[in-house]
Simulated scan of single mutants.
Amino acid sequence: MEKEIASFILYLHNVKKTSENTEMSYKRDLAKVKNFMEEQGVVDVQKITVTNLNSYVLYLEKNNFKAATVSRNIASIKAFYHFMHKEGIVKEDISEALKAPKIEKKLPEIMSTEEVVRLLEQPRGSSSKEIRDKAMLELLYATGIRVTELISLKVHDVNLQMGFIMCRDSNKERVIPFGAEARSALLRYLENARNTMIHGSDSDILFTNCSGQPMSRQGFWKLIKHYAKKAGITADITPHTLRHSFAAHLVENGADLRSVQEMLGHSDISTTQVYANMNHNRIREVYAKAHPRG
């Protein structure tokens, strides 16, 4: 099964142009399937049966994996089998018989505008690191991009004069505007801090760590946790919380869903619809509290 998994990952990379994180996620999920099948004495992928696959799903459920995790694993198996069937490695796609568990859709956690302001005001020093941190936080909230997209930005992806960034997601590109606060923070960073951060190298990465190397996701995750704590925010804040907050605040203030969808890079507008639902819920709450006959 190892050879087939390697071929599948290569297909994702070369044909589907998936991100490294997506490929790693598939690889992890399928490695677990491989290990489970080997423990059952099944080493040939062509000898795996529907019963074997259902046993694996049952194993996940019995070991108290969350419904979302089980669903993701099933999606990985289905994608893998679709590839193998298409390539003629297996005669039939037995994964079609698998059914994902129902997932209770949770509304994303968002910050209030006051919390966002408190967070963004935390890097207020004049050191190169704090100037960089301020620019990163401002740009993240101003554009709603993913943390991977943020740390992958190149200097030439930023147009300060026109106020937009060019964001690349696998083989797609999208232009996202940003406002005056983010522009000011970026300008200060580029003029006063970036050369110090890159130590005079010819790096084209927009944001680097203190050693002049590209910043990691974990590095930025720690950064945002640090400033959330300084801001007195007790909720569990992650980089994605700012992305959700960006979208929710735009919709709350009248932005149309299609525009928000385009800025977020969602392929399906139903993914963006959740922010409109959040806004409807908030309006209902306000009505119930304020209306004399609510």
Rank of each mutant, 00 (worst) to 15 (best):
R124C: 14
F80C: 06
Y56G: 11
S112E: 11
K289V: 01
I224M: 04
L60V: 12
T143V: 01
L30R: 03
D256L: 06
R168F: 08
R258D: 00
L53W: 07
N159F: 07
L119P: 12
K225A: 01
L139M: 11
K47S: 13
I176T: 11
A235D: 10
I233M: 07
H240E: 00
L10D: 12
P177Q: 07
N209D: 15
K32S: 02
D93E: 09
Q40Y: 01
I94G: 12
V116N: 12
L190K: 03
G163K: 09
L150A: 01
E130F: 13
Q261D: 03
I176G: 09
D157N: 13
I145Q: 00
L186G: 02
K47L: 10
R284N: 12
I198Q: 07
Q273K: 06
L107D: 03
H226A: 06
V90N: 11
K62N: 15
E173S: 07
K91I: 15
A235Q: 13
A79I: 04
A247W: 03
K229Y: 01
D236C: 01
M24R: 14
G265Y: 05
Y287R: 06
G200M: 13
V57E: 11
M111K: 08
L190Y: 05
G219R: 06
G144F: 01
G232C: 04
L53I: 08
M197T: 09
I176F: 07
V117M: 09
W221F: 09
S216M: 08
P292F: 00
G88H: 14
Y11L: 02
V158S: 03
E61M: 15
